[in-house]
């Protein structure tokens, strides 16, 4: 199937061939194979993975699969080399600190989102 990853600011890639794609939907990962039923969904925060090799960090947006073409419209997306391990670790620690100390439900919600985001993106750096 053909896969494209596009954000409002740029095209990360278009029409790349892949046999199997893992899409981070809002409610968990979806595996898509070329003969999948037509699909529309909301994108969560996570790693878009092509054939288990090419990985991209995405955050928010939508995706659509139909007639052998998967289009991922991410509000934000990065190639792994564009992310900084140090910054993500710092973000994760900050979020963890808030989770330990705060009791404000809004703050806790934001921090737990930040924690998940940083943790998921950090998996890109493990060998």
């Amino acid at each position: 199937m053909k896969v494209s990853l596009i954000t409002p600011e740029r095209r990360i890639f278009t029409d790349r061939e892949a046999e199997e794609v893992q899409v981070p939907s809002r409610d968990g990962y979806l595996g898509i194979l070329p003969d999948h039923f037509p699909l529309m969904g909301t994108l969560g925060v996570g790693i878009l993975e092509l054939d288990g090799k090419d990985k991209y960090a995405v955050e928010g947006g939508f995706f659509q699969f139909e007639r052998g073409e998967l289009i991922v419209l991410a509000k934000l997306a990065w190639r792994p080399e564009e992310l900084k391990k140090k910054e993500l670790k710092k973000e994760r620690e900050k979020a963890l600190e808030v989770l330990r100390t705060s009791s404000n439900p809004e703050e806790v919600e934001r921090a737990s989102y930040q924690f998940t985001r940083a943790s998921v993106f950090l998996t890109l750096f493990k060998a």
């Binding site: 809002r26 409610d27 979806l30 037509p38 699909l39 529309m40 969904g41 909301t42 939508f62 139909e66």
Partner: peptide, 14 residues
């Protein structure tokens, strides 16, 4: 265009 899609997580949210 296809007449049917699977909506993830559901139609309303999408």
């Amino acid at each position: 265009a296809p007449r049917e899609f699977i909506y993830e997580p559901n139609l309303k949210d999408v």
